[in-house]
């Protein structure tokens, strides 16, 4: 690196060398800024996760310790066990998983074909449809939830995980549709047509050529839905009373619960999202690495 120079060398160097040095210094600066930004962001995300994890696995006493120790003094499953065995937590956990999986399946089944249609077919009102799809997100969830709660009561599906799954599907759909449409656009139409000249029906061409290529993107959209549903709390609180999902249960009992319970709850909320993202992320990278040019 030529950044360390004596003044004399600077004086001797011709104009070109100076501009070059200046350019490389600018380069270093912008790289440095990039790293700093990345580190700040990483700490911003990782520190709370770390703190929650540490406290969640500390002994009950250590939770109340002040000042907080960054390095845990003793590891104990006491807090987490306490949380997991608290009334209703396990049931709520499985309800949350079920709601998230149902939303994921529903939103993919409805959203992916819609995305495909937007990507492939020029139909009347396509642009209007694209905006309309987004407009569901223009209303606050509160405004959507109350009438929905009334409707669900009328239909007799209020206070069921299915109704929450429907709500989460509706919330996820705009993103699913827009994400999948951009994925399908990125799969060249030529490939589908080539498959059709090689003996495929349009459906077979989709299954054998488009789907494998779109899978990483579809998986990304699915992860997004899962995480959205897993973390969504407002609609879940309004639409359920006894059949609470985990976030809804935690939120409603937060004020009344001791600190260890809160940290353990936070940790339990965090883990499934992380695991899923890690699993599918590796799969994503694998497929993309192979597919992309």
């Amino acid at each position: 690196m030529s950044t360390i120079t004596t003044p004399r060398q600077d004086a001797d160097g011709d104009g070109e060398a100076i501009t070059q040095r200046r350019r490389s210094r600018q380069h270093l600066l912008s790289r440095g800024a990039l790293y700093v930004a990345a580190i700040v962001l990483a700490v911003w995300v990782l520190l709370p996760i770390y703190l929650i994890s540490v406290v969640a696995f500390s002994t009950n006493d250590a939770v109340y310790e002040y000042p907080r120790q960054l390095i845990p003094s003793g590891v104990s499953a006491e807090t987490v066990t306490f949380f997991i065995n608290a009334t209703g937590v396990q049931a709520a956990f499985w309800r949350s998983v079920l709601v998230a999986v149902t939303s994921l399946i529903l939103s993919t089944l409805i959203g992916a074909p819609a995305g495909y249609a937007i990507a492939r077919f020029a139909f009347r009102g396509r642009d209007a449809f694209r905006i309309l799809v987004l407009s569901t997100r223009a209303f606050p969830i509160v405004i959507l939830s109350i009438p929905l709660a009334v409707t669900f009561i009328n239909w007799g599906i209020y206070d069921s995980i299915f109704s929450v799954a429907l709500m989460h599907t509706a919330l996820a759909l705009p993103f699913t549709i827009l994400i999948t449409s951009s994925i399908f656009v990125s799969v060249p139409r030529d490939l589908e047509e080539a498959a059709q000249t090689l003996g495929c029906t349009p459906l077979m061409a989709f299954v054998r050529v488009v789907l494998p290529l779109a899978l990483p993107g579809l998986a990304a959209a699915a992860i997004f839905t899962f995480v959205l549903s897993w973390n969504e709390v407002f609609a879940a609180v309004i639409l359920t009373v006894r059949e609470r999902t985990l976030p809804a249960l935690v939120l409603s009992s937060l004020n009344a619960s001791p600190a260890p319970f809160r940290f353990a709850a936070g940790f339990t909320m965090l883990v499934p999202s992380l695991i899923i993202i890690f699993i599918i992320r590796r799969y994503l990278l694998g497929l993309w690495g192979r597919v992309s040019r």
Partner: peptide, 29 residues
Amino acid sequence: PPRKRPIAMVFQSYAVFPHLTVADNISFG
């Protein structure tokens, strides 16, 4: 439809299936 015609086509973009090996591409039809 194309699949019922006695034709085969070479596309300008080649339209080679990126997720299949060369052998699988050739044997696709």
